[in-house]
């Protein structure tokens, strides 16, 4: 009886979860279906969930009328570059905050947290001015280098290293290993799950970035996809079907990254949980 009750409860839970999950699918499918609608269709309501006829010309248009491949490449450079810098510097600093102590450490940590709390909108113009003094506007430097410091990365990695067992590191210390060796050979490999988690978040962030790349690039060739595709959003009209074709193609890398990281993902965040 109780077992049967349990099974019914499970089935209900499963159905509710599936239903909730399916609602998440709708906008995604709508984006893809719009990309197959007749060019010039109004992105209008009431919505039509699936086109009567598949219109591949939207894809043809987005692939040929604009430097789509170049934009894609730029987006990859931007997202991967940010991710690389973020992981490197975030893990290093996170380890330092977890395992070292020095005078002023708390103040430094506080300062880094503060950067999370000031809306980026007011920092963008000052950053543009600094970058243009450095002569880096319209280069990959301007797009990627701001990722050198990221408080979220440091925070996440700090929590991760704190929660790692210390025994291994202590043994290595007694064996005469330097902190650098311990970090590189012991701590970092253990942090792989956290790195995968952080990497996915950073990649997504870089891939979706709009305002900063818009400001930081001048030429059409240096734009990432997000900014480039805005060309279909003109003064008079928006070419929704073509825009959605571009955006649909743009979801491929994040999905690949997400799937690749998924097995680390779940374990990674655990270790990131706050143990202060």
């Amino acid at each position: 009886m109780s077992k049967r009750k349990r099974r019914i409860a499970d089935a209900v839970i499963f159905a509710v979860l599936l239903l909730g999950g399916l609602t998440m699918l709708v906008p995604f499918l709508w984006m893809i279906s719009t990309s197959f609608k007749e060019p010039g269709s109004l992105f209008d309501l009431p919505i039509q969930l699936w086109p009567e006829k598949l219109h591949w010309e939207n894809y043809q248009r987005v692939l040929t009328a604009v430097p789509f491949a170049r934009w894609y490449f730029n987006s990859l450079v931007l997202a991967l570059g940010l991710t690389f810098l973020n992981l490197t510097s975030g893990a290093l600093a996170g380890y330092a905050f977890a395992r070292f102590s020095w005078k002023g450490k708390d103040v430094m940590f506080l300062f880094s947290l503060i950067t999370l709390m000031i809306p980026a909108h007011v920092l963008i113009i000052p950053l543009f001015i600094i970058m243009s003094r450095l002569g880096w506007i319209d280069t990959y430097y301007a797009l990627v280098l701001p990722g050198l410091f990221d408080a979220f990365a440091i925070f996440l990695m700090r929590q991760n290293f704190i929660s790692l067992p210390r025994e291994l590191e202590e043994a290595a210390l007694i064996d005469g290993a330097t902190p650098w060796q311990i970090y590189w050979k012991i701590a970092l490999p253990l942090a792989a799950p956290a790195l995968a988690t952080l990497g996915t978040f950073t990649f997504l962030g870089g891939w979706n970035a709009f305002l900063w790349p818009l400001i930081a690039t001048n030429s059409i060739e240096m734009r990432p996809l997000t900014v480039g595709l805005a060309v279909f959003n003109t003064q008079f009209t928006t070419e929704w079907t073509v825009l959605m074709a571009g955006l649909s193609l743009a979801t491929i890398p994040p999905i690949i990254v997400f799937l690749a990281a998924q097995k680390y993902f779940i374990r990674g965040l655990t270790l990131g949980s706050l143990k202060g």
Partner: peptide, 20 residues
């Protein structure tokens, strides 16, 4: 470790000072 870990902090510090 009771000291300032220059090597570990440096990349973030440079990034913070330069761009943040």
């Amino acid at each position: 470790y009771r000291r300032f870990p220059w090597l570990f902090i440096l990349p973030s510090l440079v990034g913070f000072l330069a761009f943040n």
